[in-house]
Amino acid sequence: MQSIKAGDIVVSDFDLYEHYSVVSDEISTDGKPLLISATQRHGTVKEETWDVATQGKDTFLANKQSNLSVAEILNNARSQIDKWHYSVISSNCEHFSNWCLGLKVSSTQIVGASVGAVGGALLVKCCVKDPKPLDYLFGVVTLGFLGVSCSKAQPKLS
């Protein structure tokens, strides 16, 4: 926690997915920084305490670099509080954190899930004689989850 500073991106590991947050310059009464993130829970962006945003999950510094100043990153993040329209596919927490940093608005988790799902469908088509809808569903879901798992962020090494 000592190496984390305002404007950084942290990633909380929720097992099946990861949650990205922007570290605020505000500190809560427990001494931890607040986090700004887009959540499905709220359907928008909120600035919340560390413990509420991370829900006690393992959280680490993301390996993301920006050319923007800390003030610009935080201004970007706060400009979307109660305005950002959350969507798992097109405007999730990873899209939001990348946008705040001035990076390409994308999500490695969505790309991983999509590639995995398509790969699962193709694998079923190639390997199962006379595949049924449930065969496709199994392939899409299984390799979709594998794709998300493979896309997980790596901690930033200091």
Rank of each mutant, 00 (worst) to 15 (best):
G31H: 11
I36L: 03
L61G: 05
T39V: 00
N76P: 05
L143K: 01
K132H: 01
E72Q: 15
V88L: 08
G116N: 05
G102E: 11
N76A: 04
V10G: 09
L134C: 01
S12A: 15
H85Q: 12
E48Q: 11
N76L: 07
V10E: 10
Q55E: 15
L74E: 11
E18S: 09
D51M: 08
K129F: 13
G43F: 01
D51C: 01
I81Y: 09
A71Q: 14
L123F: 15
P33H: 02
A113V: 14
G102F: 07
E26L: 01
C126G: 13
Q2P: 01
F145Q: 09
I9G: 04
L68T: 08
K104I: 11
Y20K: 05
K83M: 01
I36E: 11
N67W: 01
N98T: 10
E26Y: 07
W84V: 06
A62T: 10
K83V: 12
A77S: 13
D25N: 14
I73Q: 09
D13L: 05
F14Q: 10
D13C: 02
L134M: 09
V22H: 06
V148C: 09
S114A: 14
V148W: 00
K5S: 08
G119I: 08
L103C: 07
Y136H: 10
T44F: 01
I4F: 01
H95M: 10
F60I: 12
N63L: 00
D58A: 13
K152C: 11
A6Q: 03
N75D: 15
C127V: 08
S28Q: 10
L146A: 15
V140K: 03
V52F: 14
K156D: 09
E48D: 14
S97V: 15
C93T: 07
L16C: 00
P33L: 01
L16W: 15
V105S: 12
S151E: 01
W99Y: 14
S151N: 10
A53D: 04
Q2T: 12
T49Q: 07
T39L: 02
A117E: 08
V10Y: 11
P131Y: 03
L68I: 05
C100D: 07
V118A: 14
I4R: 03
V52T: 06
D82Q: 12
L146T: 14
N67A: 13
S149N: 12
S87Y: 06
I89F: 14
S107V: 10
E18Y: 10
T59W: 04
V140W: 02
V148A: 05
I110P: 02
R78N: 03
E72G: 00
S114I: 08
G147I: 06
G112V: 13
